[in-house]
Each structure stands twice: as structure tokens, then as C-alpha cells.
């Protein structure tokens, strides 16, 4: 029994991490007042570029007769996926902040664009590689569970806390850092002000455009890293057509579930992750698999109902979210 629960929890954490990364990126973005619905697109862009980045690094070194290094390969994937997500967000930021285009439409376009981008280059490199594109065992090893001496060997607790791949710890550290940023730092306070009421922030001498650009682009980069997790960890370094599909939208829902708090995001991501992989651990006879697949989405609907009924001022979407700002508007 304990084994099943432990396995379920571990799987939940592993499945929840890409959602957490996507949600953290979107929290940062929404706190600046930009409602970027392109999370799925940016995750796709990060997923394919991260994989291809590592793949190209390996190919280049192997061709030169050097043995690729797993850590460097992982760093390449991290950097490239961040840049790809940030690039997607930059398109969004330019359209909404500079050109003041509608945020919802722009976000949806980014999702469609990113999905096509990911699947196109996935197929393209797959064909070029002779069927499918995959990274070598060196890179795979870099994304496999860590073994920390002593800590990982603690019974149960070691398994539950200290045997994940490095990206899980990266995501949690990011959430903690973001929590500190919003709570304590001056820049976090300014960013919250920009998202709540850009006119008030502007009057207080805050450069609204700069904060919005930075938050949106960095947020997009974090979403891209979340996508890279999908292609490197979830599918073990092999490109699977449409591997991110649905995750981006769940990340957007998770932002609401977490009520825009990075800290609550950790918990909620694990819950969502658990709901997604539940069918492999809890089987109810006669219940079709499709019902299990529906559970996260049903939970999202429930959360939306609960949050809209609660109407708390502080655990709500930033008041300026979704609205573009133009100082001389009358």
C-alpha cells in the first residue's frame, strides 16, 4: 500500500513539474498585466528547440570526434528552450505592449503558431534523422533521477524528496524565488502595481512598458523551459508528435487554481499532476480511461466556479490584467 502511495506521489511530482513551470511563467506574465494565452505555444517552442539544441550539440561533437558531456547538453537544452519561449513571448509583447493589439487574440495566435512550430520542426528533424529524432544516452542520463548520497537512501522520505531529476528542484527553487520577489523585493512590488493599475504605476514613476516587456519575456522563457521538460523528461528525449498538447492550457488553469501565488502553485501542480497520472495507479473496474483523462479539466471547471464565487480582492487576477495601457488615452 505504502509503495503504491509513494509511487503515485512521485509520479504526481514528475507529471506536475512541467505544469508548475508553465504556471510560474504565466504568473509572472499576468502579474505584469499581460494575459498571455500562448502558454501552450511557448511550451511547444521550448520543447522542440530544447530537444534539437541538445541533439545538435551531440551531433556536432560526435562528428568532431569528441564525447558529448551530459551536463553541458542539459544546459544547452535549458538555454535554448528559454530563449525560444522568450522569443514567442517577445512577439506577443511587441504586439500587445507596443502595438496595443488585443491580448486574447494575440495569445491564441501564439498558441496556434507555437504548436505548428513544434510539430513542424519535430517532424522535419525526425525525417532528417531517419524516422525520429532522439538524444543520446548521455543527455538522457543528465535528465534521469538524481542520486544524492545519504539523502536519497533514507527510506520512503529519500524516495519522496531526494530522487527526482534536477528540473524538479529547479522548478521548486524558481517558485520560492518568485515568491520572495513578489513579497519582499521592490521590483516585485512595482511589477504588482503595473499589473493592478498601470496608470497608477506610471504616475508613481514606474516604467510600465519596461516592466511589462521584461516580465512577459522572462515568463515566456520559463514556459519554454516547462515545454523542454516534456520533451526531455516526460518523453525521455524523443520527439513525440503533439507531446505538449493540453499541458499549456492546464498551466493557465493552474494559475487560477493557485490564485496567482507561486507558492500555492507548487502544491496545486502536484495535485494536477496526480490527477493526470491517476489511472495508472488507481484503477476502478469498469471505468474507461477517458474518464480519468477528463478529471484535470473537470477540476479546472470546479476551481473556476469556486474562485468566481469567492471574490476575494487579494487572491484575484491582477485588476489590470488583459488591458493594454496607453498613457495619453482619454
Amino acid at each position: 500500500m505504502i509503495d503504491i502511495v509513494t509511487a503515485l506521489l512521485m509520479a504526481a511530482v514528475l507529471a506536475g513539474t512541467p505544469l508548475l513551470l508553465g504556471a510560474l511563467g504565466e504568473i509572472l506574465t499576468e502579474k505584469s498585466g499581460n494575459l498571455n494565452l500562448g502558454v501552450e505555444g511557448m511550451m511547444f517552442m521550448g520543447a522542440i528547440t530544447g530537444l534539437i539544441g541538445s541533439y545538435c550539440y551531440e551531433q556536432a561533437l560526435t562528428a568532431a570526434g569528441i564525447v558529448p558531456n551530459g551536463v553541458i547538453s542539459a544546459l544547452v537544452a535549458l538555454t535554448v528552450s528559454f530563449l525560444a519561449g522568450a522569443f514567442g513571448a517577445l512577439i506577443y509583447a511587441f504586439l500587445t505592449i507596443t502595438l496595443r493589439a488585443n491580448q486574447n487574440v494575440t495569445g491564441l495566435i501564439l498558441t496556434i503558431f507555437g504548436t505548428g512550430f513544434g510539430n513542424f520542426f519535430g517532424e522535419y528533424f525526425g525525417l532528417a534523422a531517419g524516422g525520429y529524432v532522439a538524444v543520446s544516452s548521455v543527455t538522457k542520463a543528465a535528465f534521469s533521477p538524481l542520486h544524492i548520497p545519504l539523502l536519497s537512501e533514507i527510506p520512503i522520505l529519500g524516495k519522496l524528496l531526494f530522487q527526482y531529476n534536477w528540473m524538479v528542484y529547479f522548478a521548486i527553487a524558481l517558485a520560492l524565488g518568485m515568491f520572495w520577489f513578489f513579497r519582499v523585493s521592490r521590483f516585485g512590488l512595482n511589477l504588482r502595481a503595473v499589473g493592478e493599475d498601470p496608470a497608477a504605476a506610471d504616475a508613481a514613476g514606474i516604467n510600465v512598458s519596461r516592466y511589462r516587456y521584461l516580465a512577459t519575456v522572462i515568463g515566456g522563457g520559463i514556459c519554454g523551459i516547462g515545454g523542454m521538460y516534456m520533451s526531455m523528461v516526460t518523453t525521455s528525449g524523443v520527439w513525440v508528435h503533439g507531446c505538449v498538447t493540453g499541458y499549456g492550457w492546464l498551466a493557465v488553469a493552474l494559475v487560477i487554481f493557485a490564485t496567482w501565488s507561486p507558492l500555492r502553485g507548487i502544491l496545486v501542480a502536484i495535485i494536477f499532476g496526480g490527477l493526470m497520472i491517476m489511472r495508472m495507479y488507481v484503477s476502478i473496474p469498469g471505468l474507461p480511461a477517458q474518464i480519468y483523462d477528463m478529471v484535470p479539466y473537470v477540476a479546472t471547471i470546479l476551481v473556476l466556479i469556486i474562485t468566481s464565487v469567492r471574490q476575494s480582492k487579494e487572491h484575484a487576477m491582477p485588476a489590470g490584467c488583459g488591458l493594454n495601457y496607453f498613457r495619453e488615452e482619454r
Binding site: R192, E196, D197, A200, A203
Partner: peptide, 12 residues
């Protein structure tokens, strides 16, 4: 300047 419509963030 003290604006007619206050430039304050309600949640802060």
C-alpha cells in the same frame, strides 16, 4: 500631482 481619480493600488 494628486490626481482627481486616485492613482493608488487597492491591494497594497
Amino acid at each position: 500631482m494628486i490626481h482627481q481619480h486616485f492613482k493608488l493600488i487597492p491591494v497594497l
